Simulated scan of single mutants.
Amino acid sequence: MAVGKPTLYLVHEPERACFEALLADGFARQAAFEICSYLAQSTDLAPEFDAIGTACAARGLDFRAVELDDAAGVLETADRDRSLVWTLTDGVAYFRGGAAPALARLNGLRTIGADDSLFALCQDKFRSGAVLSALGLPVPQAGLVRGGEWLVEPPVSVSGYFVKPNRLGAKIGIWEDSRIGRAGDALGLGRRVFDAYRDEVVVQPYVAGRNVRASFLAVDPNAGVNVLGISFVESGGDFQTMADSMALYGDTGAAARDEGSYREPELVPVASLQPRAAKTIEGMAARLMAGLGLRDVFSMDLRVEADDTVHLIEFEVCPGLPCFDFRAYCRMQWGMSLAEAMAETAARRFD
């Protein structure tokens, strides 16, 4: 009997499918549109599925891009010994991609990335912050607001507070006034977020510093934190709003590229300016890998102050692969395009 090639399955949730599900659940069209914008990586990567397939074929692999709604049937029939599942889009509330690694485990299939429990944890900022704090990592202590009422009050802060949705992406629902002076002002923002998105808000003491993204892809299965890409992300603002995010990705970002108005933030290696902070971040990543089991692919968002104080804001087990920063990381660290890096990562797992 002929034996098929090893196959990489890339499971993704399209914006369209999410939008239709949210409308069916009673969300307003504008809110559903804004929520779905966080799935723009599926939109952005789709034109490159052929390139990923070609890169996989060059390494003796088959490649299948699988929409999330088809994943249960496809993975149920996949060959346990010759299949590898990579989840592109996560989510446990508005997005449903967190089901993909669980489906892979149900069917005895190997995966790229962390186990399915972490897909749920990292999507709940309040709970993940509590776990990260228990691991001794420098995470701002958070309060939690549902609607206009405190569930947990934040600590006193002389620097003011930052407010963001709890289960949506860190940018969705973030407006220009999301940095506030008094904790009580979070109640009004909490009502706005709950009315639009049905989400709680996390209220954290505002931390100063520059925005940093740390990206990790173990093209080599034995790679450690030495391959972590750690960069300042210079967008010209203190924090990225929902409007900023939508201008970079998906259909809006594509339109901006067509018009010539697209502007990517500048990436500057942290080690070139603050090597002590870069070493601290590597230590944090090692702690996450040992304490939580992060592996294969993940990212961290941080703030770094001028005196090398580092604040860990959040981690993601499903980083935006087609985003400008991750593409730059693949080029700089691995000397590969995104498609080549994905294919090589999968091929070495089969080896």
Rank of each mutant, 00 (worst) to 15 (best):
T43Q: 01
C56N: 04
T54I: 04
C56K: 02
Q41N: 09
D44A: 09
Q41H: 12
T43I: 07
L39T: 02
D50T: 15
A58G: 13
G26T: 13
R59E: 14
F49T: 09
A24S: 14
T43W: 04
A55V: 08
L39A: 11
L45P: 01
L39N: 08
R29P: 04
S42R: 00
D25W: 08
A31E: 13
G60I: 08
C36Q: 04
P47Q: 14
D50R: 11
P47R: 13
F27N: 01
A32K: 02
A57E: 15
R29F: 13
S37I: 01
I35T: 03
A32D: 09
F49W: 15
P47V: 03
A32F: 06
A51Q: 10
A46H: 02
L39H: 08
D25N: 12
E48H: 15
C36V: 02
A24I: 10
G60N: 12
D50N: 06
A24K: 14
L45H: 02
Y38Q: 13
T54F: 05
C56A: 13
R59G: 00
Y38R: 02
A46K: 10
L39F: 11
T43Y: 09
S42P: 03
A55W: 00
A57M: 04
S42K: 00
I35W: 02
A57I: 03
Y38G: 08
A57T: 04
P47N: 10
D50F: 05
A51H: 06
T43S: 04
Y38L: 08
Q30K: 14
D44N: 10
Q41W: 06
A57H: 14
I35P: 04
F49D: 05
L39D: 05
R59Q: 15
A55G: 03
P47W: 05
E34D: 14
R29Y: 06
A46Q: 09
I52K: 00
S42I: 00
S42H: 07
A51F: 05
R29E: 15
P47G: 09
E48G: 07
F49P: 00
I52F: 08
G53T: 06
L45Y: 05
A32S: 10
A24V: 09
A31G: 06
D44H: 02
L45S: 04
F33W: 11
L45V: 07
D25P: 03
A28S: 13
C36P: 08
G26A: 11
D50A: 15
A55Q: 00
T54N: 10
T43C: 07
A31F: 06
F33H: 12
A40P: 05
R29D: 15
G53E: 07
C56E: 04
A31K: 05
A32P: 01
F49L: 12
Q41G: 06
A46T: 13
F27L: 06
I52V: 15
A46V: 08
A51N: 09
C36S: 13
D25H: 08
G26S: 11
E34F: 06
T43K: 00
D25F: 08
